[in-house]
């Protein structure tokens, strides 16, 4: 393993270890915050998977996040009585519904060569705007104000989970999501997705059904984003139209770009870093923070495409793709 790959591996393991040990050093309040950041991290992973790996630039990733959040809320608030009100059903719906929407959207968008990267970005952007408008008008899901009093994650006996228990639940979910994304990225499927990202036509000529592969990864990503949304709403206790909208979609884009789009851990930590810094800003600096963030984003796009953490956290390629093969 090269030195930089060793560094990447160490830092990645260190980051997860650090997250695991956090409750020993942080108080309840900060653990609660960290749980939120980790949830956003899962959201960022979903974008990192399609953007970094397959080159699909989606400006509407929050659509799936929001649908997941709404699903969880609707179930646990008892608004879908035929499904019961168990949080597990809620989580399941939070994964399945966005997954189906993603599959449908992917099926429409990835038709032949109809939608190039730019077209896709604009179409997903408009879709996010339209989804927010639609959510605001739909009274059943709460209309403009959304839904409140969404119950937090609870133990089997009905008591809400403690702050630490919630943190570990979300943290382990994040780790599993990360490992799943990593597995996809490092498998031959990941290689083919990289080929699609690099040169779609050539991959098509090798006999791959490029469209199917794009729909597949887009669907998985939608499921992940929805899962994050479901977890989100149990922590914040509410869900509202901006969660499916343009603003959040572009925020997650910033996190992933700044953190490092082609390295999954970079995308994950990007979300944590940006959110944590935002929180640390005092109210008066807040308005300048957005300007700084925008400028940082421009800088990253123009000069640092691997983001701030991309180079540091890059892992070695899978052994079968390494130097000289089976050694």
């Amino acid at each position: 393993m090269t030195r930089s790959a060793r560094l990447g591996l160490s830092l990645t393991v260190l980051a997860w270890a650090g997250l695991g040990l956090a409750p020993l050093v942080l108080d309840d309040w900060n653990i609660g915050l960290l749980t939120q950041y980790v949830t956003y991290g899962i959201f960022a992973l979903s974008l990192g998977l399609i953007w970094g790996q397959a080159g699909i630039l989606c400006f509407g990733q929050a659509i799936f996040f929001g649908i997941g959040a709404y699903s969880m809320a609707l179930v646990t608030l008892g608004k879908l009585p035929w499904l019961g009100d168990s949080q597990w059903t809620g989580l399941a719906l939070a994964v399945l519904l966005p997954m189906m929407v993603a599959a449908l959207l992917g099926w429409i968008m990835f038709q032949g060569r109809a939608l190039s990267g730019a077209h896709l970005a604009i179409v997903t952007l408009c879709a996010a705007v339209v989804c927010e408008i639609a959510a605001r008008r739909w009274e059943f899901i709460g209309g403009f104000n959304g839904l409140f009093n969404v119950p937090p994650l609870s133990a089997p006996n009905g008591d809400p989970l403690s702050t630490n228990a919630t943190y570990f639940f979300v943290g382990i979910a994040a780790l599993l999501t990360y490992l799943l994304s990593l597995w996809i990225g490092r498998s031959p499927l990941g290689t083919v997705l990289a080929g699609i990202r690099n040169d779609e036509r050539r991959t098509l000529h090798f006999g791959y059904d490029v469209r199917l592969h794009k729909i597949f990864v887009f669907t998985v990503s939608g499921a992940m984003a929805g899962f994050a949304g479901g977890l989100f709403t149990t922590q914040f206790g509410f869900v509202s139209p901006p969660l499916v909208g343009f603003a959040l979609s572009t925020e997650v884009l910033i996190w992933v770009a700044v953190g490092g789009r082609s390295v999954l851990m970079g995308a994950f930590l990007g979300a944590l870093a940006v959110r944590a810094t935002e929180n640390a800003m005092s109210a008066s600096l807040d308005q300048y923070w957005l300007i700084a963030l925008g400028a940082l984003f421009i800088l990253v796009v123009v000069v640092l495409p691997q983001g701030l953490f991309g180079k540091l956290l890059a892992l070695a390629p899978p052994r079968r793709l390494g130097r000289g093969g089976t050694r």
């Binding site: 996809i184 031959p188 499927l189 290689t191 083919v192 059904d209 199917l212």
Partner: peptide, 19 residues
């Protein structure tokens, strides 16, 4: 790897995952 896996790729992304 990309042309090498094309045989499995014919069966879709899931088969590529385990290939």
């Amino acid at each position: 790897e990309i042309p090498l896996a094309a045989g499995a790729g014919r069966y879709g992304p899931l088969s590529l995952l385990g290939y």
